[in-house]
Amino acid sequence: MTIEVRLADVSRSIKKKKCCRKASSKTKRFPSYAVSFPLQRLYMACLDVFKGAGTVPTSADVQKLCSILDGMRAEDVGLSKNLQFFKTTSIAEVTPKVVCTTIYQSENFSLCIFFLPANAVIPLHNHPGMTVFSKLLLGKVHIKAYDLVNDDDNSNNNSSSPSQSKLASLKADGVFTAPCDTSVLYPTSGGNIHAFTAITPCAILDVMGPPYSKKDGRDCSYYKEIPLDALPQERAVPTGEKSERCWWLEEIEAPKESEMEGIEYMGPPIVETRLL
């Protein structure tokens, strides 16, 4: 069974489009759904929290978004555990492909859902200059996350050539099961470089501010892990960092697993107005 078939009941009319397509400036209409109050509330909060490139939400704003996301359920974006996609299947995928749908996108932030079949991988990648909130809506996923070590040679997530290794500190390496708290990463902390491996079929809601933009210098880079003792120790592990949690990260070309299929969002609509 192909992933397109398993996702047939996520949207009645799946249309293959470029992943993370920019939303229309006009209000979308979805006759089969009423406005979802939690989703609308999230959108309204994002309008206030995200101020554009070069800014990071305050701790109070982070808590505000987390409190909304922590309370959100799969049903708030039109998903259900009863969807065929979230049921186990005896037919294995040779290369499970991740599917992405964009709920909303502007210059300041985007709301996206990623669907991962069991064993699918979103490879180790970064979020340059971005603050990202990830909410696991359904399923069980393994997350591994790193931050670049803050020294003179590792001050920029996106500054090295593909052949140059960067010293990084492991910040997360564990399994998360829905429902669970929202995870937050920042431009230079919180696990800005991370990877997902689906243990069961998963749905992850991502709030990214600002979104990826190649023209604005926020292109996605991919990495491979190299054990600390595998390369010459050119820089000592900084004070406060445990050597067993440090790895070299080497930038690589986008791997095959990074390819995603984009589908049209067919869940509850967002009303683009503050007058609610």
Rank of each mutant, 00 (worst) to 15 (best):
V98D: 00
K22D: 10
F85S: 00
T177I: 10
A168W: 00
E4R: 13
S13R: 15
A254M: 14
D152T: 09
D206Y: 06
T239S: 15
R6P: 00
F133R: 01
V237Y: 08
S160G: 11
V99I: 14
S24M: 07
C202T: 06
N119V: 09
A198Y: 03
A8H: 15
E241P: 00
K215V: 15
A92M: 09
S213L: 08
A203C: 08
S80W: 06
S32K: 11
S161N: 12
N156K: 04
Y104N: 11
I103N: 01
C66I: 11
P123H: 07
T55P: 01
R41A: 12
V35H: 06
N158K: 07
G240M: 05
Q63V: 10
K135I: 07
L185R: 02
Y265T: 03
E241T: 06
A92L: 13
S165E: 09
D216N: 13
Y146G: 00
D216H: 12
K144G: 00
S67H: 13
K28N: 08
Y223L: 02
H125D: 02
D206N: 13
E261C: 10
N150F: 05
L185H: 03
P128W: 08
N126W: 08
C20W: 10
D61G: 10
T273R: 11
C202E: 02
S160H: 08
I270T: 04
I91K: 15
K17Q: 15
K87I: 13
